[in-house]
């Protein structure tokens, strides 16, 4: 009885000590590359470097916009946590929820389940499946089950992509740091860490709607075939097997 009570007391104490990350957080950029995106480049495998080179050639020719952006598809995790508009973090029983206000994509809330193990089989999704636990003052989050449509800091992604985050407060709770380590043998030669920084906004900060409007004019002007190797949504649109609601035609 006594040891059980002691354990209960200890765990209750640990729960009470959890940092308060609930709030509205203003994205400040990447710690490694706030101004210069060319620092902290990913250790990309040759196939991915070739993809980057192809995209760079297209960009030089004036083609920079993604089809996903024209269609207002979600940007997915981690892009949904990196925008000029803030994120809302909510700590509730058993989960942490992150709500985006990322206007170029209609992003879903991201759910991070606490004290749960990663399911063996995952249905690939835009934000993936996230499980986490507190290690002292750091929330350690594991994410898998990402679909192959969004990107991870410009890298392609999919079933082989595993992401570990270390989320913690700094500056007496005024700053939130998210160290995002990407593991993916298909795209990277070794794990790669990108650190995201956020500033706490006042409690009365309002959230605004930011519903993305599809740009069908831009889509009509886009040569999908020319982009099929560099833009996954262009390739999908050209694939009859992936047509919108095929059984409904």
């Amino acid at each position: 009885m006594r040891p059980a009570l002691l354990i209960l007391a200890l765990s209750a104490g640990a729960a009470a000590a959890e940092p308060d990350i609930t709030g509205t957080w203003d994205y400040q950029g990447r710690v490694e590359a706030v101004r210069d995106i060319n620092t902290n480049k990913p250790p990309a495998v040759p196939e991915v470097q070739a993809l980057f080179d192809k995209r760079a050639r297209l960009a030089a020719a004036g083609v920079t916009r993604r089809v996903a952006n024209m269609l207002c598809l979600p940007t997915g995790f981690p892009s949904m946590m990196q925008w000029k508009s803030p994120i809302v973090v909510l700590q509730t029983k058993g989960r942490v929820t992150i709500i985006s206000e990322h206007d170029p994509g209609n992003d879903e809330p991201r759910t991070i389940y606490l004290n749960k193990t990663m399911p063996a089989e995952l249905d690939p999704s835009w934000n993936g499946y996230s499980v986490a636990r507190w290690e002292g003052d750091t929330l350690v989050i594991q994410t898998a089950g990402l679909n192959d449509r969004g990107g991870v800091f410009g890298l392609p992604r999919g079933e082989s992509t595993k992401i570990t985050e270390r989320l913690f407060l700094q500056d007496g709770g005024k700053t939130l740091i998210d160290q995002v380590t990407v593991n993916d043998p298909k795209t990277l030669t070794k794990p790669w860490t990108v650190t995201l920084k956020y500033s706490r906004m006042p409690e009365d900060t309002e959230r605004f709607e930011a519903v993305c409007e599809p740009d069908l004019e831009a889509l009509r002007a886009t040569d999908l075939a020319a982009l099929k190797e560099t833009d996954v949504e262009a390739a999908r649109m050209l694939d009859p097997a992936l047509a919108y609601n095929p059984g409904g035609r």
Partner: peptide, 17 residues
């Protein structure tokens, strides 16, 4: 907009243009 160059680094790659 169709003939644009890449976004400035600070604004990210997903802006509308």
């Amino acid at each position: 907009v169709a003939a644009l160059l890449p976004l400035a680094a600070a604004t990210g790659a997903d802006a509308h243009h």
